[in-house]
């Protein structure tokens, strides 16, 4: 049985008095997509550096595929594929050269490395651009080549540090698609850091929210959201008298309700499934709502709850500024 787990145990990275990563622990199971979600400077990249042997932990320990990242670093490097936030390609080289060297360093023969390189170039749709120095590639092309380099040796465990930061929506969806495919078809365990809530929500089986070097919450996206509280059905009426009538009709069906001028909020678990019953009941009572919306907790609400602040991604900050 092969082990594709990533385990961190009280990891600490300290620079002087500053704790970039402060006592972080998690246990990623084989074949899981684990989302490491946090704003800029939360400690995501530092954690990736330690797990991938680029940086040494100040304290604590971690294993990747069962190998200790400090004492068995050479083995970790053989089974892990890594695409860092900072793209790692030499602008003065060509894609085929980069991929072939990469393959050769992972022990492939000249022929194998060449074949694998061509296969990957077609996978990331760069086959036509092999004659060009990669320094002339666009941002999206570089990102795809960088990902291809991480996949040369068919890693058991893939580390993706903010793989879609700075990409346009179409390229981002391409990467999402590829991440899912690698996970599904190759059983790769994927450690994915992101500063996008929707990305973590979309891809990850399990999420850890990191803030200020510490893990603030951990669980599946659904669990994290349901931990926030129940969903709500929001009904709007044309006058407040109707709100009161609706409230008395519906109070038995919900956990809790709240009237706020012309809006009535119904809090209940599994709110979506309860909508038909609510509508039927109102029709029977002859009450016609002006609108009906469903509110489900988002990861942003989770973030707000565990860190006490709204999640703000880099792009949003840029817009504010």
């Amino acid at each position: 049985m092969s082990n594709r787990e990533v385990v961190a145990e009280n990891l600490v990275k300290r620079y002087g008095d500053f704790y970039a990563v402060n006592n972080v622990s998690f246990h990623i199971k084989s074949g899981e997509i684990f989302g490491f979600l946090g704003p800029n400077g939360a400690g995501k990249s530092t954690t990736v550096a330690m797990l991938t042997t680029l940086g040494l932990p100040t304290e604590g320990r971690a294993t990747v595929g069962g190998y200790d990242v400090v004492t068995e670093a050479a083995y970790v490097r053989r089974i892990a594929g890594v695409a860092l936030q900072e793209i790692g390609i030499d602008p003065l080289m060509k894609s085929l050269e980069l991929l072939t060297i990469q393959g050769r360093l992972f022990g492939q023969s000249r022929k194998e490395a060449r074949a694998r390189a061509e296969e990957l170039l077609s996978l990331v749709k760069l086959s036509e651009f092999t004659d060009r120095l990669v320094g002339k590639y666009s941002g999206g092309m570089r990102r795809r080549l960088d990902l291809a380099m991480a996949l040369v040796h068919e890693p058991a465990i893939l580390f993706l540090d903010e793989p879609t930061t700075g990409l346009d929506p179409a390229s981002r969806r391409d990467i999402w698609h590829e991440v899912r495919r690698l996970n599904r078809d190759h059983g790769m365990t994927i450690f994915l850091t992101t500063q996008y809530l929707e990305e973590a929500d979309e891809l990850a089986d399990r999420i850890a929210i990191i803030d200020g070097g510490k893990i603030a919450a951990e669980g599946s996206p659904a669990d994290l959201k349901s931990g926030i509280g129940s969903e709500s059905i929001n009904l709007t009426f044309t006058d407040s008298e109707m709100v009161n009538r609706a409230a008395s009709e519906l109070s038995a069906m919900v956990d809790r309700l709240q009237a706020d001028r012309q809006v009535l909020r119904l809090y209940l678990t599994n709110a979506a499934a309860a909508i038909p019953a609510v509508v039927t009941r109102l029709q029977q009572a002859g009450i016609q709502p002006a609108s009906l919306t469903l509110t489900q907790p988002t990861l942003d609400d989770v973030f707000l709850k565990v860190t006490g602040q709204r999640f703000q991604s880099e792009s949003e900050q840029a817009e504010v500024a």
Binding site: V7, H27, Y67, R78, I79, R104, L105, A156
Partner: peptide, 18 residues
Amino acid sequence: YTESIGSIQKLDERAKTM
């Protein structure tokens, strides 16, 4: 996690090096 780290089976060292 101490116990689980100790009991984890290691991946094959399938990849060679030059």
